[in-house]
């Protein structure tokens, strides 16, 4: 038997004529943080909801913690934690009451006090849900996902719509859970979230996985290239620029001082540029090297932007 926390083979989901998930395969190992990255409507949430046992698949084999989500719903739900993309509580429910209530549904629970401390909600323990800020509501949603000390945590767009400060706080919490060995599957359309937090990423588009690997592997394997930008102390307009080693494309800014070269071998390209500047007696004011982001990889693979 496999030790994978999640095994998905040939998963498909149709809504009438519309096929939302078109045969996807992946595995998530125990202790791994895995992201499904893709634009809205790509099939991420449908896939995750099938894994959580709240949506039935049309076909394919799925095992989550060894359970079939369609047939062993209750056993599965007892062992997983879920933070939904959008959720709500009655305005007059107190924070600690929500934790106590949901704790009573599971066969094992973490103490309410411990969760309040971990999610920095102690001061809000007696506050009504309706008085919480967006960030506090999201922290409560994550606390509820952790209430049963889950073996596997699903985070569906956990930072969507939150301000940057709260987003960083939630990133820190996910990093902490990762360090503790918690298996996490998260969906996101934020590149930096996938790059910073995840061991592996599956890029999903129109119901299919178009790339899967570590962020570094995807950046290397993709057709997207690094870019090298130099800022010179004088304009380069009118100069005969050489072909830079490894560069596939160059761009010159309107004032002629900023030169950008796209290259699959950025170190070689940069060395060639610096050498040319030296020979040409042109001063260098700034230099910048950018690796391709997962967004660049996504654009290279699908021709679309993630937020489309």
């Amino acid at each position: 038997m496999s030790s994978a926390a999640i095994e998905v083979r040939g998963l498909r989901k149709s809504y009438g004529e519309v096929e939302a998930v078109r045969g996807i395969d992946f595995e998530v190992a125990a202790g791994e943080v895995f992201a499904l990255l893709g634009p809205n409507g790509a099939g991420k949430t449908t896939t995750v909801e099938i894994l959580e046992g709240i949506r039935q698949r049309t076909s394919g084999d799925v095992r989550v913690l060894g359970f079939d989500p369609d047939r062993q719903k209750m056993q599965l739900k007892d062992r997983i934690g879920v933070c939904l993309q959008s959720t709500n509580f009655p305005d007059k429910m107190r924070v600690r009451e929500a934790l106590d209530l949901f704790g009573s549904f599971y066969s094992q629970t973490r103490g309410t006090a411990a969760l309040l401390g971990r999610l920095q909600l102690e001061e809000k323990r007696d506050a009504f849900y309706g008085t919480l800020s967006g960030g506090q509501k999201q922290r409560l949603a994550i606390a509820l996902a952790l209430v049963n000390n889950p073996a596997l945590l699903f985070l569906d767009e956990p930072t969507s719509g939150l301000d940057p400060q709260v987003r960083l706080e939630i990133h820190a919490l996910i990093a902490q859970l990762r360090a503790e060995g918690c298996t996490i599957l998260l969906t996101t359309h934020y590149i930096e979230e996938a790059e910073r937090l995840c061991d592996r990423v599956a890029i999903i588009d129109e119901g299919r996985i178009v790339a899967l690997g570590t962020p570094r592997e995807l950046q290397k394997a993709g057709e997207a290239e690094s870019s090298v930008t130099i800022l010179c102390d004088q304009t380069l307009i009118g100069r005969n620029l050489p072909a830079w080693p490894g560069a596939t494309k160059t761009e010159l800014s309107d004032d002629g001082r900023r030169l950008t070269a796209h290259s699959a071998h950025p170190a070689r390209t940069l060395a060639g540029m610096l050498n040319w500047l030296e020979v040409s007696r042109i001063g260098l004011e700034d230099v910048r090297l950018s690796r391709p982001t997962l967004e660049d990889v996504f654009i290279a693979m699908t021709g679309k932007r993630l937020r489309e």
Binding site: M74, L84, N88, Y106, L144
Partner: peptide
């Protein structure tokens, strides 16, 4: 009202 406000949705992922 609770279904419209996504309150019941949270219960759906719990083992009840």
């Amino acid at each position: 009202q609770e279904r419209e406000a996504n309150v019941l949705r949270r219960y759906k992922v719990a083992p009840i």
